[in-house]
Computed example of a mutant assay.
Amino acid sequence: MRNEQDRNDSVKKLKSIHASLKTYCTNPNGRHFAAYGGRGATICPEWMDKNGNSRFADWALDNGYEPRLNLMRRDKTLPYSPANCCFADRKTVHRNKATVRPVHFKGVKTSLGEAIESFLPSYDNVVYTRVRLRIDAGWSITDAVTKPPKSTM
């Protein structure tokens, strides 16, 4: 009985996510439209028709939906669709945002956060800000990430 209740709770949450997604992508008066529909984000016809919310919920439950995860388009140039979407943690979604500027670190195109994390596995916002300021001041990506901060003592 508990599993059925969990599923019903998930379906209810997913239908809410679907409704929000439709608003983000299709309502020019919506609060988030500029970041979604205003940038060209669309939703596949399968998720837009009268049964779209149920289809979306079924797809999500079959494809890794967990309440702690967020919906993410793998390719920002393609619509929200079963073939282009997945569920990912907040950090992964953030690094996939259209506003994230890619950097080249050790010969690989990556996000700045991933570059820092490859050198310092547990970093914080202070480290990120320091590296970002160094890059803005003209430092190379490699130096900005790998050089230790000057001691203040």
Rank of each mutant, 00 (worst) to 15 (best):
N29D: 14
C86D: 11
G64D: 06
F105C: 02
I116M: 01
T77S: 13
P28W: 08
V131I: 09
S81E: 04
R74L: 13
R134T: 05
D75G: 11
R68T: 10
K150C: 02
F33D: 00
C44I: 00
A60K: 04
V131E: 05
Y24N: 15
W139L: 04
R68K: 15
T92D: 10
C44G: 00
P149E: 08
V145R: 04
F87D: 01
T42M: 02
Y123P: 03
R31D: 15
A41W: 05
Y123S: 09
R132M: 06
T42G: 02
N51C: 08
K97G: 04
P82R: 10
D89R: 11
T152A: 12
C25K: 01
F56D: 03
L14F: 06
K109Y: 01
P82F: 09
K147A: 12
E4H: 11
I116F: 02
S122L: 03
N27E: 09
A98V: 12
L120F: 11
V100Y: 07
L21G: 06
P67T: 05
Y24E: 05
K50F: 06
Y128W: 13
R55M: 00
R68P: 06
G107K: 12
T42C: 02
P67Q: 06
T42L: 04
P79I: 03
A41V: 13
S111E: 05
N53Q: 15
A137W: 10
T129P: 02
F119I: 01
P28Y: 05
K50V: 07
P149H: 09
N96T: 07
I43Q: 00
R134N: 11
K76T: 08
E46K: 00
E114N: 03
L112I: 03
S122R: 11
R7C: 07
D143S: 12
I116V: 04
T142V: 11
V93C: 14
V11F: 07
R68V: 10
V100R: 07
R2M: 10
A41I: 06
G52Q: 04
D75L: 10
A115H: 01
K91E: 02
W47H: 00
T110S: 05
N125V: 07
G138S: 09
